[in-house]
Design a protein around this nucleic acid. Structure first.
Length: 108
DNA sequence: TGTTTGACTGGGA
DNA sequence: CTCCCAGCCAAAC
């Protein structure tokens, strides 16, 4: 998967995230090679749901905070989806984030 | 073609 | 500790 647009590359990585795990924007950006453009990952994810049903709820910011929850149909949808997969979320942030974090650079 | 924006991040005040 | 600023890069306007 390389001949795709940036957005589709982000989608591909997000879809690789195992169920019950989460990933940070910076990690994905680093994996894609964009490095510091973590903003692009979030930006792309926002648009990816329009072209694909990407599990964007598995992507959070560097501290496990559900920064993108407002992009869902309802602000609570993201948290509910995560909890549905076994990821505990409290006060809009992932509980035991570092244990739940999935690093594509390490796992792949 | 140039400017603005954004689900981020890390560092400094 | 919290708040603010600058860098970052691709897409949208």
């Amino acid at each position: 998967m390389k001949n795709q647009n940036f957005i589709e590359q982000v989608i591909a990585v997000v879809q690789l995230i195992p169920k019950g795990r989460v990933c940070s924007y910076g990690l994905i950006a680093n994996y894609l090679g964009t490095g510091k453009s973590a903003r692009m990952v979030g930006w792309a994810l926002k648009h990816c749901v329009t072209i694909d049903d990407t599990p964007a709820h598995r992507v959070v910011n560097s501290v496990g905070l559900l920064t993108g929850k407002h992009a869902f149909e309802t602000p609570d949808a993201m948290q509910l989806l995560l909890e549905n997969e076994g990821v505990k979320v409290f006060n809009d942030k992932v509980v035991d984030f570092k244990n739940t974090l999935w690093d594509p650079n390490k796992e792949l």
